[in-house]
Structure formats: C-alpha cells, structure tokens
Design a protein around this nucleic acid. Sequence first.
DNA 1: CCCGATATACACTTTAAATTGTACAAACTT
DNA 2: AAGTTTGTACAATTTAAAGTGTATATCGGG
Lengths: 193, 193
Amino acid sequence: MNKKMNLEDQLEHVKHRVSEQIAENMKSYGYPATIGRVIAAIYYAGRALDLDELAEHTGMSKTRMSQVLREMTSYNIAEKEFVKGSRKDHYTVEEDYYQTFITLFTANWREVTIRNKKIEQKITEELAEIYENEQATPEIKAEVEILMEDSKASIRYFNWIEQIVELFDSQDIFKYVPKDPIDEKKKAYRFKN
Amino acid sequence: MNKKMNLEDQLEHVKHRVSEQIAENMKSYGYPATIGRVIAAIYYAGRALDLDELAEHTGMSKTRMSQVLREMTSYNIAEKEFVKGSRKDHYTVEEDYYQTFITLFTANWREVTIRNKKIEQKITEELAEIYENEQATPEIKAEVEILMEDSKASIRYFNWIEQIVELFDSQDIFKYVPKDPIDEKKKAYRFKN
DNA sequence: CCCGATATACACTTTAAATTGTACAAACTT
DNA sequence: AAGTTTGTACAATTTAAAGTGTATATCGGG
C-alpha cells in the first residue's frame, strides 16, 4: 500500500476495488464485467447518469455504454429516468443485491428452458418420424424408444428448472432462505432518495 | 431434412443434436461447451471411456480431453473408473441432470463467496486504516462509514448466497421444489449398470 | 535398465467475446 | 432548412478463452 497516497485517493482506491469486485461477480453470473462497473458508477454517483458520464466514469467508449445499458435495461437491472431540462438518456440501476441476483439468475435460466424445450420438441418429431418409417427395424425402434425416454426425462428436468426460476422470481425463496433481518428492514425505505 | 439419410444416420443426427444441446447448456452454466460433449459421449457409449476414445467421439485433441476431464473431476461431475487390464484412465460422468445442475451451481457460487469474502476482508482493513488516520476529516470519516456499511451489506448478501448453496447442496431444495415423481423413482436403480 | 504407452506441461494457434471508432439517422434548436 | 446533439449500426480491432501439437515426465512390463 502506497503510503504517500492522500486519504481521498485511498477512498477512491477502495471504491475502484469494489467496482472491480462487482465486475468480476457479473462474469460469474455469466454477464459482461462492464455491467458491474456501470452499477458501481451509478451507485457511487448517487444519481442517474447519462451515457457520457458513464463512459467517463468507466473509462470506456460511449458506444460500449450504449450497448451495455441496452442489455441491462432488457434484463430490468437498469432503467431510464427522466431528467428535466436534459435531452440525454439518464439511467438508474437496481441497487438491491438480492434482487439483482434473482433477476439475472432467472433471466439466464428462463432463456435456457425456452431454448431446450424448443429443441426437445424438434427431437421428438424427428424421432417419431424415424419410428414410423416402414424401414425401421426392431433394433432401430428400440433405440428410438430409449432416446424418446431421454427426451422426456430432459423435459421433466427443465420443468423443474422452471419451477426453480419461479421460486426465485416470486420471492418465495426468502421464505426458505430468509434475507438478513437488517436487509429486510432496509427495503422499507429503499426509495427514499 | 435430408430424405436420403438412412435411419442409422438419422439416429446419429439426433444424438449429435442432443450432444450439442448439452454443450450449449454447459455454456449457460458458465462452463466450457466441451464438458457437455464429453457427458454425451460417455452417456451414449454406455460405459467409461478413456481419453483416446473421448477424443475420437468428440473430434477433439487428446490434450483437450485431458484438460476438460481434469476440470470435470475437480467439480466431481466425472470420475476415474478402474478398468481391468487397461493402463488408460477411464472416466464415467454424473448422468443425473438434477445433480449436475446442483454440482455446477454450487461449485460456481462457492467460489464466488470465497473470493468476495476475502476481498471484503481487505476492504474493511483498508477502510479502518483510513478512518484511524489522524488526518481524516469528519467528511472523510463519514464517507468511510458509508463504505463500511456497504461492505457489511455485501457480506450479509454473500452469507445469503452461501445458504442458497447449502440449500441445493444438501438436497433440501427438493423439499420445496420436488423432482418429477418419475425421476424420484429412477434414483433407486440408477446404479444398476 | 530400457521400451513402449500414457497423461500432461507448455507454447502456440484459433475462435469467440468484448470493445472501439466512424458514420449516420432521428430528434431537437434556432 | 441548416446546424447541433444524441444514440446506435456496423465494421474493425483488441482481448480473452478454447483448443492444438510437440515435447517430456512418469509409470508398468519385459
């Protein structure tokens, strides 16, 4: 630790570290790190920021900010906020950690289930076609039946995933794994600013 | 769909599609797609495979197989199985979808909590140091206090994540979101082969 | 103790994802 | 209507991740 740093710089250093930490966590969620930097920037600013300000704070191009904020709004972890007298789009972000987890987790897995159910649909059709082909030998038919079973098992699994998603999305998860009581309280005045 | 394909080829085509589907899903879990191809290869083979066989089935290099299987064993979704009369390492994989989800989910989030708790530790120390510096003005101290609160909130959140991990790892999740009854039954004779 | 077989270390190549810069369209100002 | 300001499309570049090939250490069998 550089002892010559003044206290303001040390504070900035801490904030930067937190920002990188959130960025890294976004990667673990399966999303671009830049999302984390944007969240940190807006959080520390304490107000909605526009694309130029975000580019400034993150040290990235405005183009990238545009891309990332679009992605974030699509997941509902950022939203535009009207600012009087300004033509620029200003963005706020979800600041509740629990909610961000839930939102990103569910967005990811919803996508997965939709994709997989579509594929299973196609596979089922393809298998039925093979099965009904008059050239199908008993051996072939037996193998088709196994693959059909696999497909059904896969669908059952994705139904379970859907229910998991629903468990989080509905907030019911907190019934089984409660938030820390302190955070429970905070919710009450979260929108005071 | 190419009508000239014979039925065996059509079956292979379905299997290949499933393999790619699992591969794609691994990416959504945040792991390399190749893991999915390895799982599919071993599943369809119906027995433990060695690195050369896996390279053959996946069309990839043996080196890559070595890397991926090491990664998989580290997550406990693959394990070596002794095969009499062979010097090669043979691998089996976890075939239960639910369990694979749980294993990969918990591996990922455990890593995240460990990493973040370490960082919060450092940040707390750094903030304490700033706070106790005799040059710290009241404004600085006030800001440190806010950052300290943030840090504590972060730790509370990661404690919650740890509990979520435990919920899955302990299989308690199935109490709240049960498996499909059919899969529940299957468990009983899963190890018959 | 040497030989062939195996897995992997390591440096390199390829592929995919993140990021940028330029150009332009839409909306606003005068 | 000409001139700004803003956001973003699109192609190009950079960076990071996945994958390969050669070289080598390790092990078991003769």
